[in-house]
Computed example of a mutant assay.
Amino acid sequence: MKHLAIVVMLTLLPFIIKAQDSTNTYTVDVKIANILNQKGHILIGLHNQDTFMKAKGIQNAKLKVEGDTVVATFPNLKAGTYAVMVLHDENDNNRMDFDPSGMPIESYGMSNNPMLFGPPTFNDAKFEVTNNNLDLTIRF
């Protein structure tokens, strides 16, 4: 009987440990560098694969531009895969503006700072939150 109790406990131990891990949350600090002017606001969205380029982020920030760098903090994140999108909304209309040929006229960026020749994908910008807080830098 004692052996059965030990076997049951050893079998359940990984599930108990995993359940405790799932309650941990982390913070991602996002620094936006190389802001070219003081106009408008910086709009930052933290996304998962379901919201990237489709909807408002799962967490969002709107920061006043003061200097050439701003920092946004996204707290209480569970371990997972995320991406950050950033827009310098110079005219405060809460959206990206385009020229007649369809090219963006306001500065933008995303996590991983990919060099793209078309619309970004989640895979271009994704990063993992595992068991540590993260500091990211996005350049315009």
Rank of each mutant, 00 (worst) to 15 (best):
M1T: 04
K2C: 04
L4Q: 15
I6M: 10
V7I: 15
V8S: 15
M9K: 10
M9T: 11
M9R: 08
M9D: 04
M9A: 12
P14W: 10
F15Q: 08
I16P: 02
K18Y: 13
K18I: 11
A19M: 09
A19P: 06
A19W: 08
D21C: 09
S22R: 12
T23A: 07
T25Y: 05
T25R: 03
Y26L: 04
V28D: 01
K31N: 10
N34M: 12
I35K: 00
N37W: 05
K39H: 10
G40W: 03
I42L: 02
I42T: 00
L43N: 01
L43I: 05
G45H: 00
L46H: 00
Q49N: 13
Q49K: 15
T51H: 05
T51D: 09
T51W: 04
T51E: 04
T51V: 08
T51C: 07
M53A: 12
K54L: 15
A55I: 02
K56G: 09
K56N: 06
G57W: 05
I58H: 05
N60K: 12
A61V: 03
K64Q: 11
G67T: 13
T69R: 06
V71W: 04
V71G: 02
A72Y: 00
A72N: 00
F74I: 03
P75W: 07
P75H: 13
N76V: 03
N76G: 05
K78F: 07
K78P: 01
K78G: 08
A79K: 02
G80H: 09
G80Y: 07
V84A: 00
V84H: 00
V86A: 08
N93E: 04
N94P: 03
N94M: 10
M96D: 02
M96A: 12
M96C: 04
D99G: 10
D99C: 09
D99V: 10
G102I: 10
G102W: 11
M103P: 03
I105Q: 11
I105L: 05
S111V: 00
N113C: 14
P114N: 01
G118F: 13
G118K: 05
P119Y: 11
P120Q: 04
F122S: 02
A125P: 00
K126D: 07
E128N: 14
V129N: 00
T130K: 15
N132S: 09
N132A: 13
N132D: 09
N133M: 13
N133A: 13
L134T: 08
L134R: 14
L134Y: 09
D135N: 15
L136F: 11
T137H: 03
I138V: 01
R139Y: 06
F140G: 15
